[in-house]
């Protein structure tokens, strides 16, 4: 084997080992790397009340209710499998709306309602001009293939 060959295999071998090690570490840390839990994951994990974490999903259509003073918002977050009730006091981001993705940080109350201290809007991967969005909605093809 020429020295060049040897060095080539050394580099390829080291990278393979490194890649394998990185995979193991990332798999082991999976729980810490996810940014939020979906309602289904929340149910599986059985998170105790008062532990702070983030949860996320879609804001269920028709579920958003403002309190009389307009400061408190109640809505339901769903992953289409499980649904969690959320209550939040404060300003919501511009993109917050029904049917949109959302990530909330807070903790579960004793009654199972998620008390959010911060609400972030999640944007999806679809980009289009307003006219196209309108046309898709009118044609009844909204979000069917995406």
């Amino acid at each position: 084997m020429t020295p060049k060959r040897k060095r080539l295999w050394l580099v390829v071998g080291s990278l393979a080992v490194l890649g394998f090690a990185a995979t193991l570490v990332l798999t082991a840390l999976n729980d810490n790397i996810v940014f939020f839990y979906s309602p289904t994951q929340m149910a599986e994990k059985k998170i105790p009340p008062d532990r702070r974490f983030r949860m996320g999903g879609l804001v269920e259509a028709g579920s958003v209710k403002k309190s009389a003073d307009g400061q408190e918002t109640r809505f339901r977050v769903t992953d289409t499998n499980k649904t969690v009730e959320v209550v939040y006091r404060g300003l919501l981001p511009d993109l917050f709306r029904e049917g949109q993705g959302v990530v909330a940080e807070g903790s579960l109350g004793a009654d199972g309602v998620f008390v959010a201290r911060e609400v972030l809007a999640k944007h999806d991967e679809n980009y289009m001009p307003p006219e196209v969005a309108k046309a898709l909605k009118e044609a009844g093809r909204w979000k069917e293939s995406k």
Binding site: I33, L120, E125, V132
Partner: peptide
Amino acid sequence: WNTLHQPASVARLGGPSIHTSI
């Protein structure tokens, strides 16, 4: 992983999810 950042729009299976004008 679950991220706040949106998933890929251009280099994805099933073609780009961005309208041609953008």
